[in-house]
Amino acid sequence: MGKKQKEKKEEASPPEATAVEPSEGPVPEPRQPKTVLYCAVCSFPPEYCEFGSRFTKCKEWLNDAHPDLFSQYYSEDALQSKLGTMTLAAQQKLEKDTAKKEAKADAKADAALKKKMSSQVTIKRIERNKRKHVTTVHGLEAFSIDLKKAAKQFASKFATGASVSKNPQGLDEIVVQGDVAYEIVEMLEEEVGLLKGVPADNIEVIEEKKKKAAAAE
């Protein structure tokens, strides 16, 4: 991830590659940024992976992606020199801590996933006027979908107004003008554009009659 940002930066800076000391030439050129590799798993520079919470996975990744670096950081020599600066007890404690941290991070990720899988997306059709409806979509944010962008997508897809607003409970939801509940369900199932990762079982469609809608307003 960090790498991507990095590449963009490089494009932005002028392409001349030589680093010139600014005091030397008459026209000083910018110094080139250092390229820093970031771990794809924990986003740290790989030398700090050992302090992260997903060390085992980081190691696997580094071994696959950059075997040269892997041997540099985790070769026998490197490990030995590290050991030299630490007592055996401290080393063991550190290992234990790392294992604990990893287990904790795993549990946390599991819990987050579970929560995500159990959260519902509620699509509600609310009657505005005898023949006019609005459709509200609630709960998309749990699937890390940007509500504003999703609203924009709905608006352009249905050629109607769509906005993000707070419902009476104070939670954010998308309000789309017109009765498009089933079209939205279809879009979610087909994972159009931004709408990714919502299991079909978690989608719920409710109809709301005018009386209730009036009370809610």
Partner: peptide, 11 residues
């Protein structure tokens, strides 16, 4: 930081 380097990061 040199002005040119800053300029390359923040035009």
């Amino acid at each position: 930081i040199e002005p040119e380097t800053l300029e390359s990061v923040w035009p």
